[in-house]
């Protein structure tokens, strides 16, 4: 199955990855090959098969509703690219 340049640009935008024209051309080739590989799936008869999200048929454990964390802001913000007044800074958010 081939993938169009439009699709690549759309996917790149969804994934928030900037791509230039040359990269789009390369990705068209690479992603097309990968999709050809995964298209083998279509041959499998899965009409009576339920999807499997996890290898083990386990169920979720729930945690007691207790506060176990303390304020570690200083440690976390020490590794942040930009902070001020305890806030993470980003270019202006417009709704």
């Amino acid at each position: 199955m081939s993938i169009s340049r439009d699709d690549i640009e759309k996917v790149a935008l969804l994934a928030r990855i900037r791509v230039n024209d040359q990269q789009v051309a390369e990705l068209e080739q690479d992603l097309g090959n990968i999709l050809d590989l995964v298209d083998q799936l279509q041959a499998a008869d899965t009409s009576n098969t339920a999807p499997m999200a996890h290898p083990l048929d386990a169920v979720q454990r729930l945690r007691a509703d207790e506060v176990t964390e303390t304020n570690q802001r200083e440690a976390y913000q020490a590794i942040a690219p930009a902070t001020e007044a305890g806030l993470y800074l980003v270019p202006k958010v417009i709704d």
Binding site: E84, Y88, L89, V90, P91, K92
Partner: peptide
């Protein structure tokens, strides 16, 4: 997102 002006940036809490 707090939109008060942090030098043209937004602050995230």
């Amino acid at each position: 997102s707090l939109h008060e002006d942090f030098h043209g940036m937004s602050g995230i809490d």
